[in-house]
């Protein structure tokens, strides 16, 4: 066996790959489900917090800013570990899926709130005044005049941040979640062969590379400049 053969036998072993392909695919499905749950709940929660903050109720805003700061400061892995290993002591044992989902959704919520808020405050004051001068109420102005403009400004930074946080689904493997990396690692230790890991790596690229390329396009299309 040449060294090249040894290399392909280790890293791209067809027999091993075939055997564990279903596992990796199952991992992909779970990763997609987790990612969808994180993105939907995280963005929605972030938007709701930003809108609440626009109401301008002092104590509520302090609370929002604190929660946002907290989840921007904590590494997502620390949040996952805290929820998965810590919460059971408080009598609540979330599954690996729920722990990972909650953690990443909280982190995305924090970043999304910050970005939505920046979009709202960067909309010129004159837009508020013009809308209010025609009799639109606060909520109507926010909904029909400010948000559509703010959302456009937020698309590019929000896309990038969402991708970065969604990649964190791989962290679930630390709490034994059977997503792609978890499946690949256990397949690797069962087969004493790194081929499943290469498949796992490829699976991530299949999922995320198109999104990253699409984000590049979005960035040039909806940049912060107007």
């Amino acid at each position: 066996m040449t060294s090249w053969d040894r290399f392909t036998d280790a890293f791209f072993n067809a027999r091993v790959m075939e055997k564990y392909l279903p596992d990796i695919l199952a991992g992909m499905v779970l990763t997609i489900e987790l990612a969808a749950a994180v993105i939907a709940s995280g963005l929605l929660a972030g938007l709701v917090l930003a809108l609440l903050r626009a109401l301008g109720i002092r104590p509520l805003n302090w609370l929002i800013v604190f929660v946002v700061d907290l989840f921007r400061s904590l590494p997502p892995l620390v949040v996952i570990v805290l929820i998965y290993f810590g919460l059971p002591s408080a009598g609540f044992s979330p599954s690996a899926f729920v722990s990972t989902w909650m953690s990443l959704a909280l982190v995305l919520m924090a970043f999304a709130e910050e970005i939505f808020w920046a979009g709202i405050v960067s909309t010129p004051k004159g837009q508020w005044e013009a809308a209010r001068s025609t009799g639109l109420g606060f909520g109507q102005t926010l909904l029909h005049v400010i948000l559509p403009q703010a959302l456009r400004l937020t698309i590019a930074p929000l896309t990038n941040r969402t991708i970065a946080i969604t990649k964190g689904t791989a962290l679930g493997t630390v709490v034994a979640l059977h997503e792609i990396l978890g499946m690949a690692s256990s397949a690797m230790s069962n087969s004493y062969n790194p081929s499943p890991l290469m498949m796992g790596a490829a699976a991530y690229l299949v999922l995320f590379l198109p999104v990253v390329v699409a984000a590049r396009w979005v960035e040039t299309r909806f940049s912060w400049k107007r």
């Binding site: 004159g126 013009a130 639109l136 109420g137 107007r226």
Partner: peptide, 26 residues
């Protein structure tokens, strides 16, 4: 009615959309 120095038209709406928003919502 109020008219501003900097127009303050809603950039994401057409001219007609700008004019009709308050008619519809208020």
């Amino acid at each position: 009615g109020m008219v501003f120095q900097s127009f303050n038209l809603y950039p994401h709406m057409t001219a007609l959309g700008n004019v009709t928003l308050a008619l519809r919502k208020v």
